[in-house]
C-alpha cells in the first residue's frame, strides 16, 4: 500500500441509502442463486466497509441478516409479494457475507456466503407453546407424510405423474397431533396410471415444478391427509441443451417409492 493512503476503506452507516442499495443487490443475487429452500428478504444490515480497489472501483464488504419468506426459490412471485415467515411458524434466519464490486457504476458480486439458522425451539415455545416446531426431513413422520401426500395428489391428478424434488419444510403440530410438510414436485414423462417404478420416470425437458403443502393428522382410527399444490409455469431448458436429443434425466430428483397401500382417508 502506498504511504499515507490511510486505512484504505471508508465507513458508511448501515442505514445509509447507499448501503441499503448494495444490500438489496446482495439479496437479489442470493435469491437468483438459490437452488433450494425459500426466498430470502433483508432484515438487518450488520456491518459495512467500503474498500478502495486499485486501479479503479470500490468493494463493499457487507454483513447482512435475512429472513426466510413463504415463497419457494422456484416460485416466480415477485419478492415484494412474498411474506416473511412469522416467528409463530418457526422462523429461519440467514447470516450472509458479501463482497460487491462497484466499477463504472455497475455492481458485481465477488463473494457470497450464507448460513441459515432456525430460531430455537425454546424461543418459539416461550411465546407460543402450541406452535408447530421444525423437525428433520428424515423423521419417519415426515417421510410418511410426504409419500402419502404425493400419492394423494397423483391419485387425484389423472394426467401427469409428479415426483418429489425436495422436502423444504417439516413441522410437528401438537394439537391435533399432526405433521405439516412443504415440498417441491416436478412433472415427469409418466402418466399417473402407468407408474409402477417412479424411479424410471424422467423429469420433462421443459421443467414444470410445483410447490405443495400437506398435513397428515394422526388419529386413533387412522390418519387423514390433505394436500394442496401450486404448479408453476414451465421453465424452458437451458440454451446449451440439445433440443433434438432425448429428454434429460435429472439426478437431483429423489426417487419416491409408492406407499404400500392407499392412505386410509384422503382429502385433496
Amino acid at each position: 500500500a502506498p504511504q499515507g493512503a490511510g486505512l484504505g476503506f471508508r465507513e458508511l452507516a448501515c442505514d445509509d441509502p447507499e448501503t441499503e442499495h448494495v444490500a438489496l443487490i446482495a439479496v437479489d443475487y442470493l435469491n437468483k442463486h438459490l437452488l433450494q429452500g425459500f426466498r430470502q428478504i433483508l432484515n438487518q444490515i450488520d456491518k459495512v466497509k467500503v474498500w478502495s480497489r486499485r486501479p479503479f472501483g470500490e468493494v463493499y464488504e457487507l454483513e447482512i441478516d435475512t429472513l426466510e419468506t413463504t415463497c419457494h426459490a422456484l416460485d416466480p412471485t415477485p419478492l415484494a409479494n412474498c411474506s416473511v415467515r412469522q416467528q409463530a411458524e418457526h422462523a429461519v434466519e440467514g447470516d450472509c457475507d458479501f463482497h460487491i464490486l462497484k466499477q463504472d457504476g455497475q455492481f458485481r458480486v465477488l463473494h457470497a456466503q450464507c448460513h441459515s439458522t432456525p430460531d430455537s425451539a425454546e424461543d418459539v415455545r416461550k411465546f407460543c407453546p402450541r406452535c408447530p416446531i421444525l423437525i428433520r426431513f428424515n423423521d419417519t413422520n415426515v417421510v410418511h407424510t410426504v409419500k402419502t401426500a404425493l400419492a394423494a395428489f397423483n391419485a387425484q391428478n389423472n394426467g401427469t405423474y409428479f415426483k418429489l424434488v425436495e422436502i423444504s419444510r417439516a413441522q410437528n403440530v401438537p394439537f391435533p397431533v399432526s405433521t405439516l410438510v412443504e415440498f417441491v414436485i416436478a412433472a415427469t414423462d409418466c402418466t399417473g396410471q402407468e407408474v409402477t417404478d417412479p424411479a424410471k420416470c424422467n423429469l420433462l425437458a421443459e421443467k414444470q415444478y410445483g410447490f405443495c403443502k400437506a398435513t397428515l393428522i394422526h388419529r386413533l382410527g387412522g390418519e387423514e391427509v390433505s394436500v394442496a399444490c401450486k404448479l408453476f409455469q414451465t421453465q424452458p431448458q437451458p440454451a446449451n441443451a440439445n433440443p433434438a436429443g432425448p429428454a434429460p434425466t435429472v439426478g437431483q430428483a429423489a426417487p419416491v417409492a409408492p406407499p404400500a397401500g392407499p392412505p386410509e382417508s384422503v382429502v385433496v
Binding site: L12, A13, C14, N43, Q44, D46, V84
Partner: peptide, 27 residues
Amino acid sequence: KVGQPGDAGAAGPVAPLCPGRVRYFKI
C-alpha cells in the same frame, strides 16, 4: 473535568453507524 459549551463532546450522543435497523424481528 466538566465539559464546556462548544466542546465536541457536548453535541449530544452520536448514533452508531452499525448495525442498522431491524426490518421485521430478530431471532
